[in-house]
Design a protein around this nucleic acid. Structure first.
Lengths: 337, 337
DNA sequence: CCGCATCACTGAACCGGGTAAGTTGTGGGA
DNA sequence: TCCCACAACTTACCCGGTTCAGTGATGCGG
């Protein structure tokens, strides 16, 4: 039950190993007739090149790494990561690159995993998510010269490729929309404050609120979980001067906020309008369906994978903005009564 | 910027490559003093064994594969897979095994991926989910002699290890609970009918309903998505003889069902009780929170990973039942009025 | 008919770690 | 003092592709 090697093919074709290698890789050095013969033998005996041997002789490992650094209970429910992953796969799979996954607890562990993977030559590059201000992973990536692409930002990542979406523009659009509906008291429940895109969003939110003359434009920090989303919502709704609209940094917290409002006897959208960041089936699932800031997460992931493959090939890649974010109005937003 | 090899260590320690290999792997053949010296040099220069070279010389690839065969929009929202994955990681990471992921569209593609991975010696084994009746993957796994563990069932997988949970017992418990509350008309919205565990659940549901003398115990097949969940729920609720309780095969469909009930002006749990399969943050997020059939998905995944590692080591493994499923009553179930 | 370029291929080295077989050197027992 | 056993190594080859320097045959121009 030994798996076939190029030596087996060579023997059957009556040529040398080298010729088989050229034939299989579309290199010049063999005649068209021989190439066809070799390819048909390979097909016949179900040959697949041993990836270890290939990687050993200088070539690529043909795999990229992804570490996820969030507690399992958030990973599970957030559609974001799975959307991203299927986007990666679309591009990677087409080039028969494998995706290697590791769930870690801390950024320090993440760095350790990068070091190990790269040292073992297990991967050709990594996709870095949840980028923070002065992220400790960036200098390590540079030091290791490990090809990488950063998702989230924009921020300072030096020569490392970056994919980001226009969060500032999106939140501005959302606030303007709510103001157009007649809202004056708009609050926001944010994701983890340490993350770069959270900071970008917060800054943009404050800017647009100031520009439109809205006071009380408060941002309550949370952590993307339903529990924190509920807590933050309760804090906002029990106050004397309660907001008539809340923007949430993800869909999970928005759904939790909706439940809190219902539980407190407030009608959505009559008493409270809700906007969720990241449109997902979850948003259309609940009643009323949630107005959301939509973007094509899968396409985002696909683009990131493409940039990473370019970086691996040594092509210089820059700072790419992914497809636009747009507002999808649904039943959870209306003029305040 | 060349990455260090055992030859570098050998040179610095003034010994041969072989001695270094013995020292690093804890094999006899070097003195304790030399071993310590070699280990400290390895530590100092940040040595990591090239996984390709290691895999090439007969050893393990130290990676396992997982294919996900569901559309991205379901994968994203279902907490199930991410829970499973973080369970795998807990065991795999501890042994520095990598997890290689691939999203595919059809079982045929899945088989192709298995063949390629195994042919390339990229992985040592695979985790197989969403097992069907007469699953086409089973004979291929046997033919390739690819170590594997099947999640879901129980069913006939021959000598391949299997992890399953007592779905029949769980659904029996749920139905008995609803009957105890006073329900007589109980319906069910199932997952994809082709899957083995769906069939097991359907059979058990029919059995317990027959045993308790419930007629009209209808199962409507769906596909785990919110849309299908809504559709099935509407079909059940517009009928003349509408059920007072519905059991859903996953949390997503249950949440969709809740939204449909609210949209139709029915109160939950007053007019309709809802039970979700698989407890996840989603269930406690909505209002009212959903009564659920809970199980520790992460532990399930960890156990599967452990069984797979055993199978890879050539140990015989059998048919293992994972931790118990139990009913977690919440606000979505009550006596019918 | 010769010389040279080109093609189609062979042979062997190489990647980096694992390991069986061979070689020292040392100590202890008879 | 000799012999043997054993520890502590070294040597050399293996794994399975890739790649580069050669080699023989062929074609072609002059």
């Amino acid at each position: 039950m030994k798996r076939p090697t190029i030596a087996d093919i060579a023997r059957r074709a009556g040529v040398s190993k080298g010729a088989v290698s050229y034939a299989l890789n579309g290199q010049p050095g063999v005649s068209e007739a021989t190439r066809k013969r070799i390819l048909s033998i390979a097909e016949e005996i179900g040959f697949n090149a041993n990836s270890a041997a290939r990687a050993l002789s200088g070539a690529r490992a043909r795999a990229v790494g992804l570490t996820l650094c969030r507690p399992a209970r958030i990973l599970g429910i957030e559609p974001w990561f799975m959307g991203l992953i299927s986007g990666f796969e679309a591009e990677l799979g087409a080039r028969s690159y494998a995706l290697t996954l590791q769930v870690v607890a801390t950024p320090e562990q993440e760095v350790e995993v990068y070091r190990r993977w790269w040292g073992e030559r297990r991967i050709d590059g990594v996709i870095v998510t949840d980028i923070r201000e002065n992220d400790i992973r960036i200098p390590v990536l540079l030091q290791l010269q490990l090809p990488a692409v950063v998702i989230g930002g924009p921020g300072d990542t030096g020569p490392i490729a970056q994919i980001w979406s226009d969060d500032a523009g999106a939140i501005t659009e959302a606030v303007r929309y709510l103001v157009a509906l007649g809202h004056h008291k708009i609050a926001r429940v944010s994701g983890v404050p340490g993350l770069l895109h959270t900071q970008n969003r917060t800054k943009a939110f404050e800017n647009v609120c100031a520009a439109l003359g809205l006071d009380n434009a408060i941002t309550i920090p949370a952590d993307y979980t339903g529990e924190e989303g509920s807590r933050a919502t309760r804090r906002l709704l029990i106050g004397g001067d309660r907001p008539t609209a809340i923007i949430y940094d993800n869909d999970v917290m928005a759904v939790a906020g909706l439940a809190v409002a219902q539980e407190m006897g407030l009608s959505v959208p009559g008493d409270l309008s809700i906007v969720a960041w990241d449109d997902s089936p979850l948003c259309s699932l609940v009643h009323p369906p949630l107005t959301a800031l939509s973007r094509d997460i899968s396409a985002y992931g696909a683009q990131a994978a493409l940039e990473l493959l370019n970086a691996i090939d040594g092509k210089t890649v820059g700072n790419v903005e992914a497809g636009r974010v747009h507002l999808t109005p649904r039943g959870s937003t209306a003029p305040p009564r």
